[in-house]
Amino acid sequence: MELWLEKLKSLRLLYAEDEEGIRKPMANTLSYYLKEVLEARNGEEGLDMYYEQRPDIILTDLRMPKKDGLYMVKEIRKNDKTTPILMITAHTDKEYLLSAIELKIEKYLIKPIALDELLGGLKLCVNEIELGRSIFLECKNCQFDLKNKRIIHTDGSEVELTHKESDFLELLLRKKGMVVSYEEIEMNVWKEEYMSIAALRTLVKSLRKKTSE
């Protein structure tokens, strides 16, 4: 068994979905991979369960009665910026998702969800949790101090990173072993700004210099 799957076995997941015919089979599948699966029928119930149970991972459908998944995630993100969240959407929800860009969603899963896509999303969540548990991440000749956003070299010298440098390095570490798209970099590092190829190359050059000094 892969290491990330072993780690997943120790985690608890909150799954919010209003359609019982979808929720029950999915929850049964998820229970094979996780320590516990908590089921919620809507965003309101899911939010109550989140506060009571504090799950490690959240999987939620976007459109639900009473309070939808977007409302639930927005409420959670007011005070919790770290719990990994996977959001289930339909192709027609693209415009509706524009307001979710800043909510730090690990992955959007498009219906109908294939098992390999679901597992890929859960792997991202495990990586995110492991990253958050680490204060220092090892680079080749240095350490990345996540909390203080700085590089610490083996000789004890420290180099401060800019916001874009630290966001870019953290993104690469979160996606370690995976392909990071141009769009992901623009969204997570440049956010609402336009990112040019020249600006990205300059950022990479600066970061390489700081990590190799």
Score class of each variant (00 low, 15 high):
60 T>D: 03
66 K>I: 14
74 K>A: 14
66 K>T: 14
76 I>A: 01
57 I>F: 00
57 I>N: 02
47 L>M: 14
74 K>T: 07
72 M>K: 05
55 P>T: 02
61 D>K: 04
67 K>I: 09
60 T>C: 11
69 G>W: 11
46 G>M: 14
72 M>A: 06
77 R>M: 01
52 E>A: 15
48 D>P: 12
52 E>F: 08
66 K>W: 14
76 I>H: 00
68 D>L: 04
53 Q>L: 15
69 G>I: 08
63 R>I: 05
63 R>K: 08
48 D>L: 15
58 I>T: 12
59 L>S: 00
79 N>E: 12
61 D>I: 00
66 K>S: 15
55 P>Y: 02
76 I>G: 01
57 I>V: 03
65 P>L: 00
67 K>G: 04
62 L>Y: 00
49 M>G: 06
64 M>G: 03
61 D>P: 02
63 R>N: 02
54 R>N: 11
55 P>A: 07
59 L>I: 09
49 M>F: 12
66 K>M: 14
53 Q>A: 13
68 D>E: 06
56 D>N: 10
53 Q>P: 15
68 D>W: 09
59 L>Q: 03
57 I>M: 03
72 M>E: 00
66 K>N: 09
48 D>F: 12
76 I>S: 04
68 D>H: 09
79 N>A: 12
55 P>W: 12
65 P>V: 01
64 M>A: 07
53 Q>D: 15
71 Y>C: 10
51 Y>F: 15
63 R>G: 00
46 G>K: 02
52 E>I: 11
54 R>L: 11
60 T>A: 02
64 M>Y: 03
74 K>E: 05
51 Y>Q: 15
62 L>K: 02
53 Q>E: 06
53 Q>T: 13
58 I>R: 08
78 K>F: 01
65 P>K: 01
58 I>C: 10
52 E>P: 10
69 G>P: 14
67 K>F: 04
65 P>N: 06
47 L>S: 06
50 Y>I: 03
75 E>F: 09
63 R>H: 06
75 E>T: 13
69 G>F: 06
61 D>L: 06
49 M>S: 13
53 Q>S: 15
67 K>S: 09
47 L>K: 06
53 Q>H: 15
68 D>Y: 07
49 M>N: 11
62 L>S: 07
70 L>H: 13
60 T>K: 01
62 L>N: 10
50 Y>M: 01
67 K>P: 05
60 T>Y: 05
58 I>H: 07
46 G>E: 11
62 L>H: 08
73 V>K: 04
62 L>F: 00
72 M>W: 05
53 Q>K: 10
58 I>L: 09
66 K>D: 06
75 E>Y: 10
52 E>G: 07
56 D>H: 08
79 N>G: 13
60 T>W: 04
58 I>D: 07
79 N>S: 14
